[in-house]
Amino acid sequence: MKARWGYLLLIPLALSGFLLFGSQLVFLKQSFYQDLAFGKTAAEWTFGNYIKIATDSYYLRTLWLTTYISFIVAIVCMGLGFPIAKVLARLQSRWTTFLLGTIVLTSFITTVIQIFGLIIIFRADGPVNRLLLFLGLSHEPLRLVGTAGGVIVGLIYASFGFAVMLMYGIVRTIPESLDDAAAIHGATKARILTRIILPLSLPGLIVGFLTIFNLSMGAFTSAALLGGGRIITLPVLIQRTMLIDVKYGMAGALAAMLLLFVIVLNLVSVMILKRFRATRGITV
């Protein structure tokens, strides 16, 4: 008798499929109706919302700002996080568990709490600004709320732990015996890093970069709390259009734009990654 494992999928697939297509189709459909006042929408289909997004430079500027911020966040998270992940993945010490636990902890705590702490630290009379003014490094207090820099810092805090966890997993899958083999043949530590660890983890790093970029494109908490109504990223704009302006059609169209942007980006990078693997013969 051959077990028919595929049947196990029926119920999960039905539920996931309903939640996925149900929710996505409803909001995509809604995005084709013009908004009237008080959350009502017009009866006929139009592309009006999309035309407005494409022609109004405000929406395009928001998309650009969100992309730009997410790009910087992903670069910084990967760049600052990789040395941490690499050392932790190879370190055999009683500190490893403690340091790993700290990293895991930061992603177990809601971003709201971290932002709470950041706002206190960067208050005008907070410790950082008192130090900066005292050292004469800055003449006026550094502001976090309502600046693009603040939103970037907040998003980095939101994703950093996740980025390190991701890269730790990647470096751990590279056998340590490869390091040893290279060392026996006289490779220096720097050479082991550039010739073994980096090339082998590169596909994983690219996926990691995209994951952080995606997360930041959709990240709401840091952008809403630190943007202070002045720096408005796409997720914040979507939330405001939906809950404050009560324009369901427009919010749907903006969400569709964000979704499309992220999906296209993912598809393109999957294609690049496939070619990359084919030419380099790397299987990770």
Partner: peptide
Amino acid sequence: AVAAVLRAPLQIPHVVSGIAFLQLFYL
């Protein structure tokens, strides 16, 4: 295709899931 449907929620930005579910529940 089945695997893609099951994995899809990971790719959808959370804000989009949020408004999508709100509208689904209205409907």
